[in-house]
Amino acid sequence: MPRRLEIEKALAWAFRDELPKTTRPGGRIKTLGLPAVWGRIDKFGELLELVDEDGLNQWGVFADPFAVTAPHPDAIAIAETVKALGLLALDLPADWDPLGDVELGDDRAAVLARAVA
């Protein structure tokens, strides 16, 4: 039976828990094994480097340099769906006004244009 989650929980799971498992561009998923003490210190140094560099991965989240598994396929499907939302074109009626009774004065047209954009 398929597991069902509320949309907010599914997005949090995908973007917070799973997608960080994809490393930064050019990186790879590392196998930790049983590193020596100095190996752990090196790993901590790599984590600190994320503060000073662009540590975002292909999904726009900070990569987990300690990940030992890839993201779950469902998380990747969620991310691809979210990305595709940006490709949708809005087909709104010319007289569309979601703010109806809100007083905006002369700025009304600019506010609505920004909302659509």
Results as ranks from 00 to 15, higher is better:
70 A>K: 07
74 D>M: 01
72 H>R: 03
88 L>P: 02
92 L>N: 11
100 G>D: 11
89 A>D: 11
102 V>H: 11
92 L>K: 14
78 I>L: 12
71 P>H: 11
101 D>W: 11
84 A>L: 02
78 I>P: 15
103 E>V: 14
87 L>E: 14
68 V>M: 10
106 D>G: 13
81 T>R: 09
99 L>K: 06
101 D>G: 14
69 T>C: 02
87 L>A: 13
84 A>M: 01
88 L>R: 05
65 P>L: 00
101 D>M: 09
72 H>Y: 00
75 A>S: 08
88 L>Q: 13
105 G>Q: 09
69 T>R: 08
91 D>G: 10
67 A>C: 03
87 L>Q: 06
111 V>K: 01
74 D>N: 01
84 A>C: 01
66 F>G: 06
89 A>S: 14
103 E>M: 04
72 H>D: 15
66 F>A: 03
98 P>F: 11
82 V>C: 15
87 L>Y: 04
70 A>E: 08
105 G>R: 07
71 P>T: 09
76 I>R: 10
71 P>M: 04
79 A>F: 06
76 I>G: 04
95 D>A: 07
106 D>A: 10
81 T>Y: 08
86 G>A: 15
106 D>Y: 00
71 P>C: 15
80 E>W: 00
84 A>P: 04
89 A>W: 14
75 A>Q: 02
82 V>M: 12
93 P>N: 14
101 D>E: 14
100 G>C: 05
92 L>W: 12
105 G>K: 05
108 R>D: 05
66 F>I: 01
91 D>Y: 10
68 V>L: 00
77 A>K: 10
106 D>E: 12
85 L>S: 12
92 L>T: 09
72 H>W: 01
106 D>V: 08
86 G>N: 08
70 A>R: 02
88 L>Y: 02
90 L>T: 01
65 P>G: 04
77 A>C: 00
98 P>L: 13
104 L>F: 10
104 L>S: 10
99 L>I: 06
74 D>L: 02
82 V>H: 13
74 D>Q: 05
74 D>E: 06
110 A>F: 04
96 W>R: 06
82 V>R: 08
89 A>N: 10
68 V>W: 01
76 I>C: 03
95 D>L: 11
111 V>L: 04
65 P>T: 03
95 D>I: 07
69 T>P: 01
82 V>I: 13
68 V>T: 09
93 P>R: 05
73 P>Q: 00
81 T>A: 07
69 T>H: 15
88 L>N: 03
77 A>E: 05
103 E>S: 14
